[in-house]
Design a protein around this nucleic acid. Structure first.
Lengths: 344, 344
DNA sequence: CGGCGACGTCGTAGATGGTGACCATGCGGG
DNA sequence: CCCGCATGGTCACCATCTACGACGTCGCCG
């Protein structure tokens, strides 16, 4: 490893001068700077980020904690965060809690001293633990509202409302929610919104779960659901909704003829399965970017206004998994009907 | 931040003693160590990884470069690498080249000084550039054989052979390969294996591409393919194969009745689309773990034997996207037939 | 019983690579 | 003549590790 000392010696200047030519150009004579730069180039000098980190306590590293890297839900989010981070001159340190609050905690403990700030996507930790971590470093949480801690969330209520409107228009009068992880804030939000808004709309709301927020989780849920055979199901996320669909199809239950299914997130697969999945889409990419930009702003000293969260708009993508209610009695209060959506 | 100096002062010992109690237990009296540990605990002391890194040049960080985080192909690989890394006491620094050799290079430049070793999945850089990087740090490449540089690859030839056998058994006499990125080593391997082994088996081999190794890439490819209407298609990876299938289905081409489609990797989606995708499965998780274990071994001083690569076995998963050839003339040389596989 | 060496324990000091506050020098202008 | 500025050197500091050496104790051997 060639250091500033090597360059300094070769150039006949003091180490600090070499440091300055890179760390604060302009602070050193243009000619000398040029010469030093050339010699550094010849010697193949690269500033050692660790030395810099120790001296300036800037690692140029941002942490991103996800609950499951393999979950396609995070694909675009990570991508968006990546882009924004690179843009801001930061590298992303990715950690995976694998749906466990404990693992999340230990991973965090290793991350925190190394990164300048971080983002926690779908935390499985308690509010207080989270608040505690936030005291140590600038941080932004995703899919969770937490006073005192800046957050980026999707408009769950709006998504649920759109889903309710669609289902009512299709003649449904009851909906079963397939719950994801109990520790997930978004899960609670979605179910409560469904219960409240759905109740207000005269819908009968049921709930099964919790299940793992994966395809397998949805598959398990379908076994329970097969006994009740609801006419409409809303899943915590797309992967689960798809698991439910597969469980139904495997048993000969027709979708959307017998059961309508709606998911959350609009991951790529939702457009690839058959029937294609109706889902509440969130701008994941922007979400990741917004989160990164918010931490960076925080690191630059921006103050977080308590209770304020970035709310990302959602959009209901009506596809092939939802359709007119056909089974059993016809709902007395029938809304305006619409064609069984199979468009994208 | 509480440092060893704070602990040392509180315990009435020299800083070096505190350092030793944590860095090399046993080198300090058991009682003193106990006392220091207790005081450190009380003060909430955590060793600063950056100071440690500077002094020992051990960052406990491993780099993992992928060509696209959003590609589900990497999901299980990343997961496997994660687990193995944690197991070995390392953290994973994930970088994304977004299918660009240039981005890969610059990202690498930022990673290299920080990590102790790294893994490059599906590199888009040249062999020489790669060899150059390998000189700086222990590294393992994935899906690429490179003398002098340890690598972990899947048995592409065996996978292709299995695909060929299946297609011949189903009565096919020509196969079109849908190529992925030109810079992908695996792509070249797969096509060459298909050309050579396929030729030997009396198959007529065509090729279209290159296309992006994504769903969209496969969709584009399908537009070209629709003109030729081959009876059998092998895609560079599952995502492309699924893209091709969708392109075909959208135009009313039936799968597998009119065209058989085979992919590579066996990503989750392959089991979820309809028809389910026949594909060459690789043990991605083990691959990630093996790669990590290999770098770690390398870092510990293990010597790499030139030309030697870890070859992961593959397995052909026959599903619903392949079937008996029906269109046009019947092949003169008909192998042993087998039922149109719709099993898992 | 005295002396010497080995060993266990811990402190001192320097090293890691880079930064930045402070200071010294020299020059030009008012 | 003095002031200010541009420039570059000196040195302390960031948090931790470690080679070396000091010191005391113990045991062994003469």
């Amino acid at each position: 490893m060639v250091t500033i000392y090597d360059v300094a010696e070769a150039a006949g200047v003091a180490p600090s001068t070499v440091s300055r030519t890179f760390a604060r150009p302009g602070r050193v004579n243009a000619d000398t700077a040029e010469r030093i730069r050339r010699i550094a180039e010849e010697l193949g000098y690269r500033a050692n980020p660790i030395g810099q980190a120790l001296a300036t306590s800037q690692t140029k590293l941002l942490g991103l904690m996800v609950s499951d890297v393999a979950n396609p839900f995070y694909s675009q989010l990570i991508r968006g965060a990546q882009l924004a981070a690179t843009e801001a001159g930061y590298e992303l340190l990715l950690a995976d809690s694998r749906e466990s609050g404990t693992r999340e905690r230990t991973a965090l403990e290793r991350l925190v001293p190394v990164v300048e700030g971080f983002i926690i996507g779908s935390s499985r930790m308690s509010d207080s633990a989270l608040r505690n971590v936030a005291k140590q470093r600038p941080m932004v949480v995703l899919n969770r509202a937490l006073s005192d801690v800046p957050s980026v969330v999707t408009d769950n209520a709006a998504g649920i409302q759109a889903a309710i409107d669609l289902l009512r228009d299709l003649g449904h009068d009851s909906v079963t929610y397939v719950a994801g992880p109990e520790a997930s804030w978004a899960d609670g939000m979605r179910f409560r919104a469904l219960r409240d808004l759905g109740g207000r709309a005269g819908l009968n709301i049921q709930k099964v779960g919790p299940y793992l927020p994966t395809f397998e989780g949805g598959l398990s849920a379908s076994r329970t659901l097969l006994e009740k055979l609801p006419t409409a199901v809303i899943g915590y996320n797309d992967l689960m909704a798809i698991g439910v669909m597969h469980g139904f199809l495997r048993e000969g239950v027709q979708i959307p003829e017998q059961v309508s299914v709606i998911g959350f997130d609009d991951i790529l697969i939702s457009r690839l399965v058959l029937p294609t999945l109706t889902t509440v889409a969130a701008p994941m990419r922007q979400m990741g970017a917004t989160a990164v930009n918010n931490v960076v702003a925080l690191m630059k000293g921006a103050k977080h206004r308590t209770g304020e969260a970035s709310v990302m708009p959602v959009q209901l993508k009506v596809r092939g998994s939802t359709g007119q209610r056909r089974r059993k009695r016809v709902s007395p209060a029938l809304g305006t009907t619409m064609v069984s959506g199979s468009a994208s």
